[in-house]
Amino acid sequence: MYDFAYHKPASVADAVKLLAADPDAKPISGGHTLLPALKHRLNKPSALVDLSGIAEMKGIRREGNSLIIGALTKHVEVAKSDVVKAAIPALAYMASHIGDNQVRNRGTIGGSVSNNDPAADYPAAVLGLGATIHTSKRKIAADDFFQGMFTTALEEGEILVAIEFPIPEKAGYAKLKNPASRYVMAGAFISKGPAGLRVAINGAGPCVFRQSDMEAALGRNWSADAVAGVKQSADGLNSDIHGSAEYRAHLVTVMAKRAVAAAG
C-alpha cells in the first residue's frame, strides 16, 4: 500500500466535510474490497476516512413495509438478524453466503453496494428488491444507482448511509461461485412485491442488471419452469478463464430458476 492519512469521523456530516476537503480521500468501512485493491497498489488515496465510528450509519430496523439497513451493517449482522430473517429471508440467506466467515465479520453492506463489483452479491439484492439508497444528501432508486462496472450514481464525497428495502411477498437468491475467488460467476435475485416483479442478475455481466424477459415470463406464470424457458443472450456478458459469456448466459437461466424455486 501507499501510505495515506487516516481519519475517523463520528458523524456523517464530519465525514462529508473530510471527503469534500480532500478529493483524493476515500471512505472505508469494513475495508474488504478497498484494502485488497490498496495492497496491490491499484489505488492511491491521500487519506482514508473510516466511517466505522458513525453511529447513525449502523443498525437494522423495520419501518412499516420497509427494512432499513445502515450502511455499516456487517454481512454477519444481516445474516443473523431476526428482523431481516422475518422480513426478507432471501436477504439474510444472501448475506450468509457472501465470501467467508471472516469477510462476513468485517465487510459491510454499504461498502459492497458503493463499490458495485460486478461479482459482488449485494447489488443483486438492492436491484432485485427495488431498494432505495439513502445517501448523505439524497435518495436514489436502485434502478438509477448501478451505472456500470465499479460505477454508481454516488458523486464525489457522497456517502451511502443506509439502504431501504421494500418488503416483498416473496424473494429468492441463487448463485454459482467462481471456483477460485469464490465471488459470483452468475447469480439471480428475484422478488415479487411492492416494487413489482424483479429479476436482477449479478456476476454474469459487467454490472448487475435486470432481466426483463424473465420478469415478463414470471409475470405470466410465477414458476421456475417459466424462467427456465427464457434464454439470456451472451452478448456483453463477461468472458474469462473461468467461463465463456455463453456459459454465463446459460448459468443466468439456471440461477434464475433456482432463485424462483427458493422464493417459493
Binding site: 471456483p179 477460485a180 475467488s181 465471488y183 478463464i241 473461468h242
Partner: peptide, 11 residues
Amino acid sequence: LMSGSMMDYTM
C-alpha cells in the same frame, strides 16, 4: 500470466 493470484488460480 492469466492466473496470477488465488483469485484466478483455484486452490
